[in-house]
């Protein structure tokens, strides 16, 4: 699974992209975020408040209960501020 981080999530994790092999019990976005928190203090800090975090799976906006699977591209970012 490919994980992308943007804006302050990229700064706090110190990573813009990482390839991960999540354990088999990770089947949805919420489970994935919980597991990513265990990867280090930067990840834990960045993902501490999920109300400040948005997710896209394969470039489609996704809710916490959306399914994820090996091979997916999952992007994690704050609310958008374009325009």
């Amino acid at each position: 699974m490919k994980i992308l981080y943007f804006a302050w999530l990229r700064q706090q994790t110190g990573i813009d992209t990482e390839e991960v092999e999540a354990p088999g019990e990770v089947t949805d976005v919420a489970g994935l975020l919980d597991w990513l928190k265990t990867r280090g203090p930067g990840h834990a800090a960045a993902l501490a408040d999920l109300s400040a975090v948005r997710v896209a799976v394969n470039q489609e906006f996704a809710e916490l209960d959306a399914e994820v699977a090996p091979g997916d591209e999952v992007a994690i970012f704050p609310p958008m501020t374009g325009g």
């Binding site: 943007f6 804006a7 970012f77 609310p79 958008m80 501020t81 374009g82 325009g83």
Partner: peptide, 12 residues
């Protein structure tokens, strides 16, 4: 433009 402000994946 209203849509772009909130839904396009840009961060400032």
């Amino acid at each position: 433009i209203d849509w772009l402000k909130t839904k396009a994946p840009f961060w400032k």
